[in-house]
Design a protein around this nucleic acid. Structure first.
Lengths: 347, 347
DNA sequence: TATCAACACGAAAACGTTGTCGCTGCAATG
DNA sequence: CATTGCAGCGACAACGTTTTCGTGTTGATA
């Protein structure tokens, strides 16, 4: 087992000083070509790599981004991580991932665990529990300490920082508009409780589309699922709620606020003998594996998670590397969405 | 913006030495109760947290694990990460994620980027390209430098290190056995090229099951998909291959080496007018969202990714924290699999 | 009153790196 | 020959922390 060589051992071995070795490796003009050759050859031979930790300490920069998300077994979030990784790696940054599991406490712990010098900045999608508690002190304190945060998807209006979102209102309006154009008469929405910002906004877009087309908004057609935690754990509960909803309302079009809700709606509709899209047209949100491989393939809205991730990473790194330190000049970046028409809608 | 306080500023503020502050905070008995109170109160007030980087440099331990996987938009891998995170966090470790995108070069870069002191050890599932190139120098060199590696799922026999796998041969044998018991007469397998260890082993298990039941092994029934890269990029290609395969062989049972192959097989079978499971029974490998939400729900083998992740993290942390430094004493941990019977098999 | 332990604290080194500054010796200049 | 200039290198501080090893003061004991 070869131990990693340090400047010190190279220096001793070559009988020069540490500073000389350092300078030689960085091609300083203070050092003679002869010495440079010697040092570089030796360094190469022993596969010298500067110790990152020492550099971090000296530079007060870790070149590492902290990403905190509610769950990782989730297509959208992993797509975003991909985008973050892609951009960050290109810029020489590493990505360290923390999972909140939708829990406020775990989110706080994760933040504190990393905010002690381990990372230069955060990219966060906040936990549902945090949103429902409305307790954001950990976030504002982090920003206060000079560690920048970029929020994506689930953002908090009260906190000032860079944000990356889709235009939820406009997007869901487009989706409902499509349902209307497809001759749906009675259109429902399967959404989340209002404390989840995306759910609230998408419901708003749904309502807007209806009123603009002279449909009356029927609150009975608005289902707000209450799943505080990881949705995979209470699938039956979800199914029961959606089943009741579909049985009680003879809708012919439904907009679901995420993929899972849409797929579940398809499932219960099929059990009820409804044909898709003849009897019921469905549009989902977030284009993941499920939508693509569902039967029939689900018409859905693509959030372009990869681009969101890239954009979030770009905003964060820009802020980290900007010398001007212009706080309060925060950017909210809105990434475009797109309806992917597949087979759960007539057109 | 409050800057993070250091021991030095606390010391200056309280007019004591840095050592005194450090000792007071760590409850050293060298320090009087009075001073301790004073220091602790001040530290709390200014929300002092020891700088992790400085600690890492001093202790030569980062308390960070590097996880390198081929892709992250992938149910199995994210499940494993969940397990790793879960275990690692409990032990006070962070997890830094690197993506190889199935590329040898990116795997090497990721490894080098982290092996300079940023992490204490690696958990890796190697890229397909690495497996096909058979170039493992980056892995052996890392181990040589004293950085332990734990491999999972896709492992390399030639490299000595801790490993976490499922018993692929035995598991796929069980699956095929089930197909046989379900009265299938002509059973095929959709696998990968042989350089992917899991594909090779699962094919072996398939053959074993057949011969043990006095079936003849027909090489035409063995489809070895050649997808060197991210499988999502060439879905059509995949579909074409599987479609040809199913059209040319009138099989009534098929074992697919992963979820996507199984789902695609279902799709082309449906297009061909085959009923599932009446005309064709299908078993997949890796229980992900697709299997659960497919129509009909797919019978599949659960690899227990979460447990694999936990086990990998455990092996790595055990090795990191073991004082005895007993190299060569490597463990290969085999986690149990389980057949989840759903509706693509008769029983 | 002299000796000594106990107590409470400070100085300094170390982890690996970079950059500033200063020093030495040699060549070129007047 | 004396001065200057510069090439080439080393010493040292600094980043923030922990820990070892002093060191000075106090109070008690002989």
């Amino acid at each position: 087992m070869k131990q990693k060589p340090t400047l010190k051992v190279i220096a001793k071995e070559l009988d020069v000083s540490v500073s000389t070795v350092s300078k030689a490796l960085r091609d300083s003009k203070e050092i003679s070509d002869e010495t440079k050759q010697k040092v570089k050859a030796f360094a190469k031979l022993y596969n010298y790599r500067p110790n990152n930790i020492a550099l971090s300490l000296k530079n007060k920069k870790t070149k590492t981004l902290g990403v905190i998300i509610p769950e990782i077994v989730h297509h959208f979030f992993t797509t975003v991580i991909s985008g973050i990784e892609n951009f960050a790696n290109d810029k020489g940054y590493n990505v360290i991932v923390g999972l909140s599991n939708e829990s406020f406490k775990k989110e706080v712990i994760n933040l504190e665990m990393l905010a002690n010098g381990s990372i230069d900045g955060f990219i966060i999608s906040v936990a549902k529990e945090t949103l429902s508690f409305k307790d954001y002190h950990h976030l504002s304190e982090t920003i206060d300490q000079g560690i920048p945060i970029v929020m994506f998807d689930r953002v908090i209006d009260e906190i000032e920082c860079d944000k990356v979102i889709v235009d939820d209102i406009e997007t869901s309006k487009k989706a409902v508009q499509k349902l209307i154009e497809n001759k749906c008469q009675k259109i429902g929405i399967i959404s989340t409780k209002d404390y989840v910002s995306v759910g609230r906004l998408r419901t708003e877009g749904y309502k807007n589309a209806l009123t603009e087309n002279n449909f009356t908004v029927d609150e009975n057609l608005i289902l707000k699922i209450d799943d505080k935690f990881n949705s995979d754990d209470n699938l039956e509960f979800l199914e029961v709620q959606i089943s009741e909803y579909i049985n009680n309302n003879d809708i012919d079009g439904v907009f679901a606020v995420n993929e899972l809700y849409a797929i579940t709606a398809m499932k219960v509709a099929r059990q009820k003998g409804l044909r898709i899209p003849e009897d019921l047209q469905i549009i989902g949100f977030t284009d993941g594996v499920l939508s693509k491989h569902a039967f029939p393939p689900l018409t859905t809205i693509s959030q372009h998670g990869f681009e969101m991730g890239e954009e979030a990473a770009k905003l964060l790194i820009d802020r980290l590397e900007s010398v001007s330190d212009d706080e309060e000049n925060y950017i909210t970046s809105i990434v475009k969405t797109e309806i992917i028409s597949r087979e759960t809608t007539k057109f």
